[in-house]
Computed example of a mutant assay.
Amino acid sequence: MVDEAPSKPALSALPRHATVIRQVFDGRDLSTLRALNLRFDRCSFRGADLRHATLDGCSFKLCDLRGADLRGASLRGVNWAGCDLRDADLRDTDLTDARFGFVNTGAPPHGLTDVTGARFDRAVLRDLKAEDVVGWNG
């Protein structure tokens, strides 16, 4: 995590299925970001503002989203694998066809997605899949 993370316009300009690796977006204003089908690997979004972002089809692997504000975001088909979403705000999000899962690290319970304290009030959870998720009450 040495280089400066891409700006919101640079993220929006990335082609579908591009991979963003080990970037830090902590506390950044990424509200209304439109980034489709991107792959985020070991990125940090702690406390980031992602309100009303459109992240449909994106994949997050081993990412830190603790305390991130995702209110009103479109997260259709998003895959969360081994991510830390503790205390994230997912109110009013669209999580249709999303998947909360894990990464096989070979050492359980490592690699599990953690949603402890995350808020899902009024979120659309149609066809959402949650497998081996810490803090899930669904």
Rank of each mutant, 00 (worst) to 15 (best):
residue 9 P to G: 04
residue 11 L to F: 01
residue 12 S to G: 10
residue 12 S to C: 02
residue 20 V to L: 14
residue 21 I to A: 15
residue 22 R to D: 14
residue 25 F to P: 06
residue 25 F to D: 04
residue 27 G to T: 01
residue 27 G to K: 15
residue 30 L to H: 04
residue 30 L to G: 03
residue 31 S to K: 11
residue 32 T to C: 04
residue 35 A to R: 00
residue 37 N to Y: 11
residue 37 N to R: 12
residue 38 L to V: 00
residue 40 F to C: 03
residue 40 F to A: 10
residue 41 D to M: 06
residue 41 D to N: 12
residue 42 R to W: 08
residue 42 R to H: 04
residue 43 C to E: 03
residue 43 C to D: 07
residue 44 S to E: 07
residue 46 R to D: 12
residue 47 G to V: 11
residue 48 A to D: 08
residue 49 D to N: 12
residue 49 D to H: 08
residue 53 A to E: 12
residue 54 T to P: 00
residue 54 T to I: 09
residue 54 T to G: 01
residue 55 L to M: 14
residue 57 G to N: 13
residue 59 S to Y: 15
residue 61 K to D: 11
residue 61 K to R: 14
residue 63 C to F: 09
residue 65 L to A: 08
residue 67 G to F: 08
residue 69 D to K: 08
residue 70 L to Q: 04
residue 71 R to H: 07
residue 71 R to A: 02
residue 72 G to D: 04
residue 74 S to V: 07
residue 75 L to A: 08
residue 76 R to A: 05
residue 77 G to M: 01
residue 78 V to E: 01
residue 78 V to T: 10
residue 78 V to C: 04
residue 79 N to S: 14
residue 82 G to T: 05
residue 83 C to H: 05
residue 84 D to L: 13
residue 85 L to E: 12
residue 86 R to V: 14
residue 87 D to F: 03
residue 89 D to P: 02
residue 89 D to W: 02
residue 90 L to G: 10
residue 92 D to Y: 10
residue 92 D to W: 03
residue 95 L to M: 14
residue 98 A to Y: 02
residue 99 R to I: 15
residue 99 R to W: 11
residue 100 F to P: 00
residue 101 G to E: 07
residue 102 F to G: 07
residue 102 F to K: 05
residue 103 V to S: 04
residue 105 T to W: 06
residue 106 G to N: 14
residue 106 G to T: 12
residue 106 G to K: 13
residue 106 G to F: 15
residue 107 A to S: 14
residue 109 P to K: 07
residue 111 G to W: 01
residue 113 T to Q: 01
residue 114 D to Y: 07
residue 114 D to I: 00
residue 114 D to K: 09
residue 115 V to C: 11
residue 116 T to E: 15
residue 117 G to F: 09
residue 117 G to Q: 14
residue 118 A to V: 06
residue 119 R to W: 05
residue 121 D to A: 04
residue 121 D to M: 05
residue 122 R to T: 10
